[in-house]
Each structure stands twice: as structure tokens, then as C-alpha cells.
């Protein structure tokens, strides 16, 4: 039975990312605007897809914790009214609680649809689909969008490594003795920025030497089929 089910994932992965992103946008709009009945239907659909695609919960655990905290805040602030005047009084608001639950429900659905989309779409496909979406928007060169997204993802781990190296080197020279926060901000950011800006400079040179130009065809969507 499971082998039969498992076959939907490769199918969903092969599906054109443009169709998937379109479905995602539709689903998101429906989740945000829909009433209770729509939400029930969407939740059902989402659950079925989740069980078919069988996403491993382990991978999405961190996202769940973050979402959980977010939901907790929303629910509590809507259902409880805290008066700051003395004596502290907490009152329960039933209408607010239902309302808060609805909002939480919508957020959970959005998150689960997002995780589905990520589970069946590669990063490269996501970029290509976004570039394709930007194409009809005047004044936005879609190739630049795709290139900048991939550069951003490329720079991110580099920055984290550089930040860790800078922080360790500064701790070795007893930076924690310094209490002045402006000094700490400046001394931490300067080497990080200098170093990563140099990398960006070299990258720009390398791109130019390989004749990068925005006038060529967008890689990704067209070459895929």
C-alpha cells in the first residue's frame, strides 16, 4: 500500500514548478480569505497531500516550534485581556478566543502548504518559477531576480562561517571584556562586511569575465522540458 502511495512524490516533483506555484498562490489566498467551510475543505486536502507525500516530521521540526510560539502569542493576546492597572486582572474573551483560533488555523494551513511545496520542489525550480512570475511585471528584469536569489543563498552560509570565525578570533582576544555596545557592534560588523564585500567583488568580476548579461534568456524554465 505504501509503495503505491510513495509514487505520488516523484510525480509531484516532476510537475512544472509554475503550476505548483500557481496552486500555492491560490491555496494561500483561499486560506487567508476563506470562511470556516473553506478552511475545513483545505485542511482535508492538505492532510491528504501530506499523507500521500509523507514528509518526514523530523525535517520540519524547527519550523513547527517557531510556528507554535507564534500561534501561542496570537491566541493568548486575543483570548485574554490583561489590564495593567492594579490589581492585575485577567479576563477571558470567548469571541476573541474563537477568532484567535481561526487565525491560528489559517497560519498552520499556510505553513503546511508551504512545507508541501518545499518538499516537492527543488531550489532551482523555485527560482525559475519566481523568475517566470516576474516576467510580465514591467520594470523588473526577471533574470536579475533569479540570479540575485541564487547569489543570496550562496552568500548566506559564507556569511555565517565568516561571522563565526570573526567572533571566535575576537573572543580569543578578550572582546567580552568590552561593555560598550557600539564598540562591539562596530568591531564585529566591520571585518564581516569588509571580508564579504571583497567576496562579492571577486564574484562580480568572475561573473563579468564569464560574460554575464541580463539580456540573455532566463535559464531554468525554458531549458527544463
Amino acid at each position: 500500500m505504501f509503495s503505491e502511495h510513495a509514487s505520488i512524490k516523484p510525480f509531484a516533483s516532476r510537475m512544472d514548478a509554475r503550476i505548483k506555484i500557481f496552486c500555492m498562490i491560490l491555496a494561500s489566498v483561499a486560506v487567508i480569505l476563506g470562511n470556516r467551510a473553506v478552511l475545513v475543505a483545505l485542511s482535508g486536502g492538505c492532510l491528504i497531500l501530506w499523507s500521500l507525500i509523507r514528509i518526514q516530521v523530523r525535517h520540519v521540526f524547527r519550523s513547527m516550534i517557531c510556528l507554535g510560539a507564534m500561534l501561542g502569542v496570537i491566541f493568548l493576546t486575543r483570548s485574554l485581556t490583561l489590564s495593567f492597572s492594579w490589581p492585575l486582572a485577567i479576563s477571558w474573551d470567548a469571541a476573541g478566543a474563537t477568532d484567535g483560533l481561526m487565525t491560528c488555523w489559517r497560519l498552520i494551513l499556510l505553513m503546511f502548504f508551504g512545507l508541501l511545496w518545499l518538499a516537492v520542489t527543488s531550489h532551482a525550480d523555485i527560482r525559475a518559477a519566481v523568475a517566470w512570475l516576474c516576467k510580465p511585471v514591467p520594470g523588473i528584469p526577471e533574470k536579475r531576480v533569479a540570479t540575485m536569489m541564487s547569489l543570496t543563498l550562496r552568500f548566506l552560509p559564507l556569511i555565517m562561517d565568516q561571522a563565526a570565525a570573526t567572533s571566535e578570533a575576537q573572543q580569543s582576544r578578550c572582546i567580552q571584556n568590552r561593555r560598550n555596545p557600539i564598540y562591539r557592534f562596530t568591531k564585529f560588523s566591520m571585518p564581516l562586511l569588509c571580508r564579504t564585500l571583497e567576496t562579492a567583488d571577486r564574484l562580480a568580476d568572475a561573473m563579468e569575465s564569464r560574460c554575464y548579461s541580463e539580456n540573455y534568456r532566463t535559464p531554468g524554465t525554458e531549458n527544463r522540458k
Binding site: 570573526t166 575576537q170 580569543s172 568591531k187 566591520m190
Partner: peptide
């Protein structure tokens, strides 16, 4: 830890990320 860091000076592999 502060004393340890004064006693043991650690020079990292990547010189550039140490220069402030």
C-alpha cells in the same frame, strides 16, 4: 576563561577574519 585566553594565545588559520 579570561585568564585562559590571556595565557593561551590562539592564532587562527584564516588571518583575514582575525584582523579588526
Amino acid at each position: 576563561i579570561l585568564r585562559a585566553r590571556q595565557r593561551v594565545g590562539l592564532v587562527f588559520q584564516d588571518a583575514d577574519s582575525q584582523i579588526v
